[in-house]
Amino acid sequence: MTTQTLVHVANPELAARWRRATEEPAWVRWTLIGVALTFLALFLVLPLAVVLYGAFEQGLQVWWAAINEPDALAAIRLSLMVVLIVVPINLVFGVAAAWAIAKFEFRGKPILISLIDMPFAISPVVVGLIFVILFGSQGWLGPWLAAHDLRIIFAVPGIVIVIAFGTLPFIARELIPLMQQQGKEEEEASLTLGASGWKTFWYVTLPNIKWGLIYGVILCNARALGEFGAVAVVSGRIRGETNTMPLHIEVLYNEYMFTAAFAVSSLLTGLALVTIAVKSFIEWLDERQRPAGDSH
């Protein structure tokens, strides 16, 4: 089976460019490296260090007390639950959208692509307000929802919706170029050999997009955990109920509980670091699984 992908088709060219780069004079190389490292240190390592320092400044016990507190635990639970709902939804949507865009020709395709990108372009605060206008009790659907005693805004469903909206492009965006590049020859071959559509998806398409899919899920997960602006608008900030981790951090900071704020921040940062570690591990696996002949 031809499941080996052509993702790294640009590699030989990249390698050539890399060789050229190393032929630059030493001072150019060192200046560039220096600039990059200084930048990284200033804008990444330093803030990370500040968060960790602030979190553990007063010892592990204080850190643990800040985490093991009902409101903090509720915020952690809520954030994780939202991720568990949002990521699968966007997974299904992303695969479906990328499949449709990459493998079929239809009218209005550019519009669909632009629409998928929209959540990236709209400010999160506006996203929140859109849903308040839609579901709020002064909004379009508000009276109907109230009559049926359904709560969307200022409750967990509202938070899920805005985060799903904000993270909608991640998986689709990851898959579309990949699937377009792969073309539809393999699927067509499978179909002409008599496989059903479902079987083709399962045995031909999915293995081909596996890594891109996992990568998209990881990005989507990271963003869903961290989303702040839109959630702040629709959450209602009920303690222990509709405060996600980022909102809880803001609450703590505003209440002068700096150590606790940093402790929860460190946990959120930790989750992000784990995400990145998993991503790197998967990339490494991907490299390893690729036979030598394919990677160059």
Partner: peptide, 11 residues
């Protein structure tokens, strides 16, 4: 639909 269903369940 998916969102609403999931959201409703959690609600």
């Amino acid at each position: 639909k998916n969102t609403l269903a999931g959201a409703l369940a959690t609600l």
